[in-house]
Design a protein around this nucleic acid. Sequence first.
DNA 1: AGTTAATGGTAAACATAGTTTACTGAGGAC
DNA 2: GTCCTCAGTAAACTATGTTTACCATTAACT
Lengths: 153, 153
Amino acid sequence: MTFSHENQPVKTRDMLIGALLRVPAHAIQRRIIEELNAAGFKGLSMPHMAVLRFPSPDGARPGVLAERAGVSKQAMNRLLGSLEDLGYLVRSDAPDEGRARVVHFTKRGRAAYAKALEVLRNIEVEWRDELGPEDFAKLKELLFRVWESPLVR
Amino acid sequence: MTFSHENQPVKTRDMLIGALLRVPAHAIQRRIIEELNAAGFKGLSMPHMAVLRFPSPDGARPGVLAERAGVSKQAMNRLLGSLEDLGYLVRSDAPDEGRARVVHFTKRGRAAYAKALEVLRNIEVEWRDELGPEDFAKLKELLFRVWESPLVR
DNA sequence: AGTTAATGGTAAACATAGTTTACTGAGGAC
DNA sequence: GTCCTCAGTAAACTATGTTTACCATTAACT
């Protein structure tokens, strides 16, 4: 099977795993943002997705979120400040440790996160329709095995 | 099969396709940058990957690269300027059309791109070893079917 | 030809995002 | 107590990206 890209026929063997993962991953991100904005969750943009993603940031420490996202604590803090200004979350002092802070969703933030999950589930339905149930399940299983492995650490 | 994430056991069914694609895609990007820098291709960072990726930018117009990457022509032009300063490519006037420009790799740029492909192929070998040849081929085939489909357009 | 409109690329102003460096305050080791 | 580490923050700086505006070339139309 081939498809045409700028007049160069491209076959499966030419595609490397990098592009095969990157393109759909980005498409999904963009679509989530789009649909969130369309659903009235204004102000959310790509960088915010470093917070609003799996696993839920609710109850987490800023530093942990920074590490997960692969950015500095300062950068994450500004992102959190932006999301706080937009009304999606609040940072409060951790109950157990005086120097620590904890992130919690506001009602609006929880609703936005739920909407993002809903969009993702819709995307999964579309993929299942396209690939067929068995192949879609197989795809997720294979990706999960990669996730579990030391490959992505 | 489960794994532990911040003391919460997580099963396959909990993982949505967004995270399953995003995490390895990012890991691959970061590793390519790391290994390029380690191999002496200094100055390359994440944003540059919007140019140094499949398909090769060699011979392409700046505007086309901008559209591929999903950024404005101006943003792409600055990225290209940065890569030109670093010695990886040159922009010259298109031979056929006076207003147009064309991007071409320098020798160093071509070497960097080749190195990136080499890293990707090494990653594929690792994944093949982890999943087994059949399952790895199956994974690529499924991702390619997604790529071909209207899902990611 | 001459005028107008569309296109590829560029420049400048502005806003956002990220890193590095440096600081504050709490916790723990001794 | 003192020393050291750790979580978070702040400020300066860099870069990245968008919007707005412009130039030059090409195409379209009369």
